[in-house]
Design a protein around this nucleic acid. Structure first.
Lengths: 213, 213
DNA sequence: GGGCACACTAAGCGAGCGCTCAGCTTCGGC
DNA sequence: GCCGAAGCTGAGCGCTCGCTTAGTGTGCCC
């Protein structure tokens, strides 16, 4: 098993599970609009227009504008957690698994920046219940990364004085990629993923580079 | 000269330069509201209410709601740049200066999280002209950090294969503190600043810890 | 081929938005 | 003691927002 090439691919393919077709088109349109302008600056008319429908059509498939954001955030967090779990529970020592986790997580944030932006930065626009649900997923994301770091410390691979603080820093570094990464810029998602995996191994004081697979 | 204790202090003190008093109260109210709810979700009635004034009073001191954001962003970026310049042009080797820059920059993002949130995450809500002005300041911020990294590489203190990418990562790590830091959480701004300075020195492969001042 | 369920549209409602304006109060200059 | 400038308020304008409703077209079942 490799580092899951399919986790960081095209923008739209992750929405295949959403049916019917009109509901998926609206969801994809909402992701694009929210990523470009932010949730509050996006109008339901804009979303419907991007999906090639009238404003009223939105309300056949979703109760409110907030439900759109909730669904996007839920699917996105599920995907993010899936990526990290695949790497965290893969084969290899902690060094290998941390490098895989960071590089695939970063590739997802860079390559699917449109989605990742909404998922990571529009959390505060959700209502209390939806917010609480998403925060629970975030704690699981955190736990996956912390688990790898703790494994590496236990095995003597890593030198980490502050596991909690360092875990936050590693995740923070990955997540912020969604803010600054530019698809038209000089770096590809793969390059940033490789660079960040190396930087993170340095942060945890990894004794050696992971073997190439 | 030390690491500028006064750069990361209380929230409101940085606005002393804004006069008259009513204009400053409105600006501080706007910072709080924007940080809590975001620019687009904040109403001019809310800002004026927090400042203890009627909605119309806002327009005596500021032409539009966007001018408030512009002024906040400008003052905040000036402050951020000032913090980095102080550290970058201070005494000591590159290791010392990078550690100072990161720890003071992080302290500012953590301690003044309200301000930093608006400054770092509401850039897209500005119009094209204001946005361009702020982006120019950001490039200067970037240049200060890259300068230190390049100094360290040239002197042999650092081992950095990708100076450009690593500089972005260092800044990204610091900036994202404004997103996750919780004033009521277990960590103080000073602690996060010290941890992050250490993590960044590891990222650049610094040969030794900086001497304590 | 008649009827009905379903997806969708045109039109628009009530609310709240950014912002304006006429008028009130306060206060320094003379 | 009067005047004009400056700071502020109460009321509200024009607009756009999220969302609703009445009605239309389409296709499937019998």
């Amino acid at each position: 098993m490799s580092t899951a090439e399919d986790t960081a691919g095209g923008e739209a393919e992750a929405w295949g599970q959403v049916t019917p077709d009109a509901a998926r088109r609206l969801l994809v349109a909402a992701v694009e609009a929210f990523a470009e302008r932010g949730y509050h600056a996006t109008t339901t008319r804009d979303i419907a227009g991007r999906a090639g429908m009238s404003p009223a059509a939105l309300y056949i498939h979703y109760k409110t504008k907030e439900e759109l954001l909730h669904r996007i955030s839920r699917i996105g967090h599920d995907k993010a957690l899936d990526i990290l779990r695949t790497a965290a529970r893969g084969e290899g020592d902690a060094t290998r698994r941390l490098a895989d986790a960071v590089s695939s997580f970063v590739r997802w944030h860079a390559g699917g920046r449109t989605t990742a932006r909404v998922v990571q930065y529009e959390l505060d626009s959700l209502g209390p219940d939806a917010r609480a649900e998403i925060l629970a997923l975030r704690r699981q994301v955190d736990a996956e990364v912390r688990g790898i770091v703790e494994d590496g410390v236990a095995s003597g691979e890593f030198d980490v004085p502050d596991v909690h603080g360092t875990t936050i820093a590693v995740l923070s570094l990955c997540i912020d990629v969604a803010r600054w990464f530019n698809v038209d810029g000089p770096q590809t998602p793969d390059e940033v993923g490789a660079l960040y995996a190396d930087l993170v191994l340095r942060m945890v004081g990894a004794k050696q580079s992971p073997a190439q697979t």
